[in-house]
Design a binder for these strands. Sequence first.
DNA 1: CAGAATCCCATCTGATACTG
DNA 2: CAGTATCAGATGGGATTCTG
Lengths: 124, 124
Amino acid sequence: MESWDPYTRGCPSRDLLDQIGSKWAVLMLGELGKHGACRFTQLRQRLAGVSEKMLTQTLRTLERDGLVRRTVYAEVPARVEYELTSLGQTLRAPLRALTEWSVRHIEEVLEARDEYDVRTEGAG
Amino acid sequence: MESWDPYTRGCPSRDLLDQIGSKWAVLMLGELGKHGACRFTQLRQRLAGVSEKMLTQTLRTLERDGLVRRTVYAEVPARVEYELTSLGQTLRAPLRALTEWSVRHIEEVLEARDEYDVRTEGAG
DNA sequence: CAGAATCCCATCTGATACTG
DNA sequence: CAGTATCAGATGGGATTCTG
């Protein structure tokens, strides 16, 4: 076991941290965790605002990292399902904690922003 | 209490989630949580690789969101200290969980990437 | 349906230089 | 020391078009 330190420049764990914390990855993993296996279009609808490009791109990265499993069914029209791997499952709790934090504290943050803006208005 | 849902487009909690999960914010909050009050240059050294610009920029955003408190001491040369607010403290646990996850599972992810790359080599 | 491919703009991010 | 200002490259992300 080496010493991986995300506070060190260029450490792979830092990149991984960026990746799993990225805009769409957080939401994608969250959705897959909540609903289980999910199709491309379903996922797209649930993540309101995601483009096909980012959906595909993020899903690929997650697949490559071993967090998501992609299963193609030989049907016409094609059907593809995405689901969390066991490794991906281990990310559910920490990610959910973060998501819940943002929901629970958004109002405090909104207030803090107002205060800050008033406080720094005009003068810097 | 309204219903804030980060899965909805344009919801402030989604933006907040992006912000607290961003590259430098995660590490900055982590460091401030570990060491307590910290000066600009100290912080810069601990977050190996961060530029002055990103340090300032991220710190400002965190300050505006009410997560970090900035204190200026009237000395020459100037001294400025940053520390977590009580709101910022509540983010420590979830963020640390995420950081620890990335450290604990980086090797599995690295292996998964190798397998993926081999599996998809040449043929798509 | 589930993408791949392409074009293009906006933002993010970093390196450099300058200042109170 | 703790920034600010500026420039430029990398990346994110959207719209559109096309395919098995």
